[in-house]
Design a protein around this nucleic acid. Sequence first.
DNA 1: CTAGGGTTAG
Length: 650
Amino acid sequence: MWAFHSPQHTHPPLQANCMTRSFVKPVICSIALNTTTTAANNNQLIQSLCKQGDLKQALKVLSSEPNPTQRTYELLLLSCTHHKSAVDAQHVHRHLLANGFDQDPFLATKLIGMYSAFDMIDHARKVFDKTQRRTLYVYNALFRALNLVGCGEEVLDMYRRMNSIGVPSDGFTYTYVLKACVLSECLMSLLSKGKEIHGHILRHGYEDHVHIMTTLVDMYAKYGCVSYAGSVFGKMHVKNVVSWSAMIACYSKNGKPFEALELFREMMLKTRDTSPNSVTMVSVLQACAALAALEQGRLLHGYILRRGLDDILPVISALIVMYARCGKLELGQRVFDKMDKRDVVSWNSLISGYGVHGFGDKAIQIFEEMIDQGVLPSPVSFVSVLGACSHAGLVEEGQRLFESMRREHGIYPSIEHYACMVDLLGRANRLDEAVKLIEGMRIEPGPKVWGSLLGSCRIHCNVKLAERASTRLFKLEPTNAGNYVLLADIYAEAGMWNEVKRVKRLIEARGLQKVSGRSWIEVKRKMYSFVSADEFNPQIEQLHALLVKLSTEMKEKGYVPQTKVVLYDLDAEEKEKIVLGHSEKLAVAFGLINTGNGEIIRITKNLRLCEDCHSFTKYISKFTNKEILVKDVNRCHHFRDGICSCGDYW
DNA sequence: CTAGGGTTAG
């Protein structure tokens, strides 16, 4: 396991507030008495008042000061930002324009930053436009402001102009333009832009600049280019916590939790002066959650306590989610109960926890408790609670909540919410209603919505509707192989083999790689990975033999192999062989051999659990008297004594 | 003068 470093806490130096305060106080008294202060004194006085937080008084003095300095205006603008007073801000702005500072590039950067903080981006733009001498700093300030409101393309556009008129870039500029590449709406076209900027950066000798290189790693991560990110990261000579965290997050977010844990291990072993912080922990916990790696998650929990990171809300939320996904909902609940302050994310984490285990009623109860306690639900709260309804088949409750969203909470349903509702209705075989909902949408239904519908068609084997959904879906997401596989599944189940072939050819023609089924199991803090028909696994023969033996015995007790899922037109016996080799069954067999009596087998699957594996695992749990937890992409299945916690509704 | 990683979702 990881060699955890003992934490070294560094305390930030204490601010010397009290000192300044006692110095300034007597000065205030003197203005009231003495109105004939000199200009120099007035400027100093305004500055002191700003630093001290007395904006109103500072503005009063300003009105009788004929010659404010640049520094005076700077502090006034900062003070306005601090007090969130846009009215005063505009007053100061007018004042400085009237006093000959309208072309001051330094104050322009301050003004832009200030308007950006007020969400007044148009005012920020106007300041930029009116400033004739646009220094590098003025550009940088605007880039930052534009990035904050998500106007990535505008940043890139301006960057182009900046280059063409010969304004040089610095390290800050590069971090802003790289971020801009990710923010944009039309993502794909800008990946090449990002690569181009990557080139500029190297040409200008920034390859050892930690901030820029880390931003690059993050940019490739957000584009899902895991290998590019890894290559940039690998070439970095100087790495710090942020760089490591960015790369670990890259793996966690891009479906490579195994690699995330591996890199974290490397970080612990290789770096002596870089210890992980709360941000690192969140990403590593996400990876544990994705893998249902409970033992590793527990170690992390201990580490979090030792490092005193347990009062950081995102860390605790990630912990709750980790426990829930590892099948230890009660531990997640306990962590939640112990919190002394909670935010909406903490609540959402718990709601989703109950959701993935199929406890829809409990999820709704917690959702309502949250509202009773005065916490405003966020859009994600509704995604969580609607998802919980969907897993539990609580259609009416889901519809009620969906309605209350807009009416009682003023939250307009987004694509995600519609996708939840389509899933809720579709899963419950109310496909007509799902279609009606889509047709009545006030926003354009995205790939998630059509994907939900296609998934439901798969469950209820509705070929006609599946064809309709997939036509739309393939246009919106032509490169998502999963969608094609889903359609092929539906055709296969309906025995339409020519159509299956057609879809398969489509996948090939478009050069897509379908995600292969994979399962993981954690035994004694180590993760073992399985793919179906894994010839390279040294234990494969032993596992196969066990599976054949169990299958034969269980068939006598009523187990019937479900071979509909096989995408090849083969005879029954061949199909049976294929499903018996599914990765999830290999992991189960491995678990049976390698775990002790009474120990729960905990498995993760990267796709939805197939019907046969589901049925097989139910029988196994009865037959071998073992408790088995399987986390598939959507939810947790808890197999005990021949039944599954999902009630065969998943 | 300004900068990099993380928080819940199917």
